[in-house]
């Protein structure tokens, strides 16, 4: 585990608010949220449905523009009242990896190409992309399924390929949306161990939205969201 006090946070969220609609229809999804995640940390976002977990994940992932606030990713201020970069997709490609609840692998690409596609988008050549993709699959202990299509992978294997894809361009921030929700306890444990390994070995910050009680003890810190606010009782 990292020492949060001694390193620059990879994710810094300051006073971020997000509301949808105006007047009578106004919904405050996030209210003055601030948090930091440091390299090597694996943190969870907890909260009931509608508490703003996914909205916060979308804001940190530069998918959703906050209404107010300040956001820094990997040492770069990306939002300060407005987006400071015009190409947010490139920003995501460089800095953020995503892991989804249902893996969201592209069904028409095999495991290797599902990982290589990110490298290809980042400008790597075909051979280099393939080589690095296979290395990653081996690292995540799913190299033996490198030629399998997503439809032929088990839930755990598919999620490991999805993690490999999230890590492909070596982002230092991994955002995970219910990464273990579709897995049984054993496989959920394996996935969390892998995320821990990635966080430690690659000095990455991992922020996961989860409802999965069986993995609560795998997180370094847990942020509780309620009605768009972070609880004081974060653990």
């Amino acid at each position: 585990m990292s020492n949060p006090d001694s390193e620059t946070p990879l994710v810094q969220v300051r006073n971020v608010s997000k509301h949808f609609g105006d007047g009578d229809t106004r919904v405050d999804a996030l209210r003055d949220v601030s948090l930091e995640v440091h390299p090597g940390e694996v943190v969870a976002l907890l909260g009931p449905s509608g508490s703003g977990k996914t909205t916060l994940l979308n804001v940190i992932g530069c998918i959703l523009e906050p209404s107010t606030g300040w956001l820094s990713l990997d040492g770069e201020v990306v939002y300060d009242g407005r987006w400071l970069r015009s190409d947010l997709r490139k920003l995501r490609l460089e800095k953020v990896g995503f892991i989804f609840q249902f893996h969201n692998l592209l069904p028409f690409l095999d495991s290797t190409d599902n990982v290589a596609v990110v490298l290809s988008l980042a400008g790597f050549g075909k051979d280099e992309s393939k080589r690095r993709a296979i290395e990653l699959l081996d690292y995540l202990e799913v190299g033996h399924r490198k030629n399998a299509m997503p439809a032929n992978l088990s839930g755990g294997e598919a999620q490991r390929v999805a993690i490999a894809r999230a890590l492909a361009n070596r982002p230092r921030i991994i955002l995970a949306d219910e990464p273990t929700a579709a897995l049984d306890s054993e496989r959920a444990g394996i996935v969390m161990d892998l995320l821990r390994k990635v966080a430690v070995e690659q000095e990455a910050a991992i922020l996961a939205v989860t409802h999965d009680e069986k993995i609560f003890d795998r997180f370094d810190r847990i942020f509780h969201l309620r009605d768009g606010r972070l609880d004081d009782q974060n653990t």
Binding site: G61, I63, D87, R89, K90, R92, L93, E94, F98, F100, N104, L106, P107, F108, V117, V118, L121, A122, R165, N169
Partner: peptide
């Protein structure tokens, strides 16, 4: 649509 959303999320530009 879901695959396209995924591609956009992982950083694929519009031209892709």
């Amino acid at each position: 649509l879901r695959e396209i959303a995924t591609l956009k999320l992982i950083g694929a530009p519009d031209r892709t």
